[in-house]
């Protein structure tokens, strides 16, 4: 069939891009609709979920008042419409715990997570790709086996547990770094920044350790596949130095399947952030989710879920936009190649 599959036309790129945008739209719609549907599907009165965990003992007339206030006495379709109107006007409900609009609380916590996850992602990516490429280059040798075993072991440890151990050793035992919070409340300027940075060391390290294994395994698998490609043999036949074969030829091409699988790793990074922030009481979205769960603050939890989903979608859009820079085959017409498909 290979011979009969001609090169894709430019129109396919547009249609492909359109399908991608549609796909992301569906993801956001699904997350939002799940938020709407869950309180109605879950056992018990939706009032309990919308008003918070302590609504069980409310007086009946108050319950009725709340129902009317949330529009729960109206038909479902109407409620769904109102829900979307709310979303588009930035109304995600009121946090029970903070007694403030959910959006305000989320925006206050968001920057911390963006910085923490951003820094950890870059570190995990660099570490995972470098080590994965190194192991693949030495595939079959003892050092590859040791690296793989070590990474699998590290990858098997729950992130929150790594965090607790790091606190016990580096914060309590050695006293090197603070174990708690994002920054001092009252500091200013450089002192404040230094304090914030020192508080980011342990959670950042935890998150990096807990997630770089995903990048390692992806890179190693892609690189091992690429190293068997004929063009690697040709590069050697040309007399290219090993180092250049590894970096300029093999790794450069192995990055393609790594980048198409970024979604999966990003999901695990954000999941890691939830538990790691909880351990370090780091004032980010993950910590917020943890608190919302403990306090049964349903509106806050749902808002955080929606925001995290938007974050994943945004990261994917970014990856899609950057992909053509990596792969010349999609630059001039043609679809993004499937993972692992390095040669046509």
């Amino acid at each position: 069939m290979g011979a009969e599959r001609s090169a894709p036309h430019g129109g396919d790129t547009l249609r492909h891009g359109g399908a991608k945008v549609g796909q992301y739209g569906v993801v956001v719609w699904a997350a939002a609709t799940l938020n709407f549907a869950l309180p109605h599907m879950a056992p018990g009165d939706p009032v309990q979920y919308l008003y918070g965990g302590d609504s069980l003992g409310l007086a009946p007339e108050l319950v009725a008042q709340v129902r009317a206030g949330y529009g729960l006495d109206r038909p479902l379709a109407e409620q769904y419409g109102a829900f979307w109107t709310g979303l588009f006007t930035g109304d995600l409900g009121r946090s029970v715990q903070y007694n403030r609009p959910v959006v305000d609380v989320l925006l206050e916590y968001l920057p911390w997570t963006v910085v923490l996850v951003g820094v950890s992602t870059v570190l995990a990516l660099l570490l995972g790709v470098a080590l994965g490429a190194w192991a693949a280059w030495h595939r079959g040798k003892r050092r590859d086996a040791v690296a793989v075993a070590a990474v699998l072991t590290l990858d098997s440890m729950p992130g929150f547990w790594i965090g607790m151990i790091l606190i016990a050793v580096f914060a309590v035992g050695l006293g090197w770094f603070p174990s708690y919070g994002g920054a001092a409340i009252d500091g200013t300027g450089a002192a404040w920044l230094a304090d914030a940075l020192s508080r980011m060391v342990l959670p950042g390290l935890t998150l990096t350790l807990a997630t770089f294994g995903g990048f390692f395994l992806l890179t190693r698998a892609a690189m091992v596949t690429v190293l068997d490609e004929p063009f690697i043999r040709l590069a050697r036949a040309k007399g290219v130095r090993d180092r250049s074969v590894a970096l300029h030829h093999a790794l450069r091409t192995a990055l393609l399947p790594v980048s198409t699988n970024l979604t999966l790793v990003l999901g695990s990074l954000l999941s890691g952030a939830v538990v790691v922030e909880s351990v370090f009481a780091y004032p980010g979205l993950g910590r917020l989710i943890f608190e919302a769960v403990s306090a049964r603050d349903y509106p806050l939890l749902q808002g955080a879920f929606l925001l995290v989903t938007l974050g994943v979608v945004a990261a994917n859009v970014l990856a899609d936009l950057l992909y053509p820079l990596l792969d010349p085959r999609v630059r001039r017409g043609g679809a993004r190649s499937a993972p692992g498909e390095v040669t046509v």
Partner: peptide, 8 residues
């Protein structure tokens, strides 16, 4: 697959 696993 596009929804963040743990939050979901």
């Amino acid at each position: 697959l596009s929804l963040p696993t743990l939050p979901l």
